[in-house]
Structures are given as C-alpha cells and as structure tokens.
C-alpha cells in the first residue's frame, strides 16, 4: 500500500512538475517581458490558487473537468477520479510558484544582453535559450523545485477531483489521511517522515540556489 502510494505520488508529481516548468516558464516570460491590457487581472488569476482553500480550487476543477464541463463536453476526456485529475490538480496549485519565480528571474536579466544577441544573429528562441534562460537559471530552478514540492504535497483539490482510491489515485498525502483515520500510526509516521524530509530537502536546495 505504501509502495503503491509512493509510486502514485512520483508519477503524479513528475507529470505535474514537467507541466509546471513548461507552462510556468512561458507565462513567466510573458509576464516579465510584455505589457497587455488586463495583465494584472491575468496575473492575479494565476496566483489565486495560492490563497484559495484547496476545496474551492477542487470545486472549480470539478466544474472544469466533471460532466457538463468543457473537458467532457468538448474534448470527451473523462479524467475525474483518475490519476490524470490528480496530476492536473497538482499542476494548478504548483504553477503560481513557478510563474512568480521565473517572472522575477527573467525580469532581472538586462534586456540589452538580449538585444546584443539579436544583433549577433540570434533568433528569438535562440535569444531565450542562449541568453535569457541561462542568466535566469537560478530563479527558474528555484521555482521548479518549489512548484514540484507543492505538487507533491497536494491534498485537498486532489481529494475533490481524483478521490482517494488506493492503487488508482491514492498519493502519499492521501494515504497519511487514511492511515490516521484507521489509527495505523506506523504507516502515518513513516510517510510523515518521508514527506518532511522531502520538504526540508527542497527548501534547503532553493536556499542554496539563492545563495551561491
């Protein structure tokens, strides 16, 4: 049971983190380097999962992914109560951390350096991957670690959209909840220790990235 939950957590977190990094980096770039009408509203919407109760995020996700929502109606994707929904929930709550960190990091890169690359023959993707990203790498890495860690620890929204089905959607945080309900403190203690260790390690890594 513990093994299953561990694997499930790894799978969900891996998929969510890849999505967080790709989408968060793109949004961070847009937020740092462009101006458009309604930008502050869009930014606030991206950040809002950070402050909403997880059940509220979960409820919105149910509206989005559940029957009658666009995923089912337009895309015929039935994801509710599968691990895909868990990954999606983790993605949504982890994304704001990545957007915030990469936006700050990219905004800190001198635009003159990007212009220099342009005059030296770089295309726009070339400018991003050879100049902007390498110079923003610390902030981007820190954002990835924080976003990934948040995805790993996701509980409330996941419970709402993916349920708590052992072997199918049950991740470590959900198993801890289960174990405590069953007064299985051996399992709970073990998993709490693992989660604490992972959280400690990721925050420590982020600090190291910021320092050096």
């Amino acid at each position: 049971m513990i093994g299953e939950a561990l694997l499930m957590s790894l799978k969900v977190t891996a998929v969510a983190t890849v999505a967080i990094v790709v989408v968060g980096l793109a949004l961070g770039l847009v937020m740092a380097r462009t101006r458009f009408f309604g930008k502050s509203v869009v930014e606030t919407l991206i950040m809002i999962p950070l402050v909403l109760p997880p059940t509220v995020v979960g409820y919105y996700l149910l509206l989005l992914l559940g029957s009658g929502g666009p995923f089912v109606e337009w895309l015929s994707l039935e994801v509710v109560f599968t691990w895909h929904a868990a990954a999606f929930a983790s993605f949504v709550v982890g994304l704001p951390l990545m957007v915030q960190a990469s936006k700050a990091a990219i905004a800190g890169v001198d635009p003159t350096l990007e212009n220099a690359a342009r005059t030296l023959g770089s295309s726009e993707p070339g400018v991003f991957f050879r100049v902007t990203l390498p110079l923003a790498r610390r902030g981007v890495l820190a954002g990835s670690v924080l976003g990934g860690a948040r995805a790993l620890g996701e509980f409330g929204a996941t419970l709402m959209v993916a349920g708590n089905i052992p072997g199918r959607t049950q991740t470590m945080p959900l198993l801890i909840y289960d174990a405590v309900q069953r007064r299985d403190y051996v399992t709970a203690n073990l998993l709490v220790l693992v989660m604490t260790g992972l959280a400690f390690f990721s925050l420590w890594a982020v600090r190291r990235l910021g320092d050096s």
Binding site: D110, T112, L113, N115, A116, R118, T119, L120, L135
Partner: peptide
C-alpha cells in the same frame, strides 16, 4: 528587416558582454 538579418556589429554602451 529583423536585427539578426542586418549584419550590423553593435558595441553597446557598457559593452553588454554575456556574463555567463
């Protein structure tokens, strides 16, 4: 014409060398 296709060398004020 975009900058990358003009073949113009530009030494910026402060030089803008890539620090990495």
């Amino acid at each position: 014409l975009p900058a990358r296709r003009r073949g113009v060398g530009y030494v910026f004020q402060g030089y803008a060398l890539f620090p990495h």
